[in-house]
Computed example of a mutant assay.
Amino acid sequence: MEKKNKIALVTGGSRGLGRDMALRLAEKGLDVIITYNNRAEDAQRVAAQIEAAGQKAATLQLNTGVIESFDRFANQLNTTLSTHFGADRFDFLVNNAGQGGYSPVSDVTGAFFDDLLNVHFKGVYFLTQKLIPAINDGGGIVNISSGLTRIAVPGSSVYASLKSAVETFTRYLAKELGARGIRANVVAPGAIMTDFGGGHLRNNEELQKFVSSVTALGRPGVAEDIGGVVAFLCTEDARWVNGQRIEASGGMQL
Rank of each mutant, 00 (worst) to 15 (best):
H120Q: 15
G147V: 12
K130M: 11
K122L: 11
A87C: 12
D114E: 10
L116K: 01
K130Q: 15
G139F: 07
S103L: 02
F90T: 01
F85M: 07
F90E: 01
G123L: 03
I144H: 01
F113V: 02
V94G: 04
H120P: 08
P104T: 05
G86Y: 11
S145H: 08
R89K: 15
V94N: 00
V124Q: 02
A111S: 13
S106K: 07
G138V: 14
A134W: 07
P104W: 03
L93W: 03
L93N: 05
L81W: 07
S145A: 15
A134I: 12
F73H: 01
S103Q: 13
H120L: 15
T128H: 03
L148W: 03
L131S: 07
F92G: 02
N78P: 00
Y102R: 14
T83W: 03
R150C: 05
G98K: 04
D107V: 02
L117G: 02
L148K: 09
N118F: 06
N136F: 06
S82F: 10
P104K: 06
N136W: 04
N118G: 03
A74Q: 13
N95E: 14
I144Y: 03
N78Y: 01
S82E: 14
F73G: 02
G139R: 03
L116P: 00
V124Y: 00
S106P: 00
T83C: 05
N95Y: 10
A74N: 08
T80E: 07
F112L: 00
S103A: 15
V119Q: 01
Y102S: 04
N118V: 03
I135V: 15
L131G: 04
Y125D: 03
Q129S: 09
T79F: 10
G138Y: 14
A74L: 09
R89V: 12
I132S: 08
L127F: 12
G98F: 10
P104G: 03
F112S: 00
G110R: 12
N96E: 10
G110L: 13
K130W: 13
D91C: 11
G100F: 03
L131Q: 11
A111E: 15
L93I: 11
G110T: 08
Q76K: 14
T83D: 09
Q99V: 14
V105I: 15
S82N: 08
L77N: 08
A111V: 13
G123Y: 02
N96L: 08
P104F: 10
L116A: 04
H84Q: 14
V119W: 02
T149P: 08
N96V: 11
V119M: 06
S146G: 09
P133T: 15
F92T: 08
F85N: 05
N78L: 10
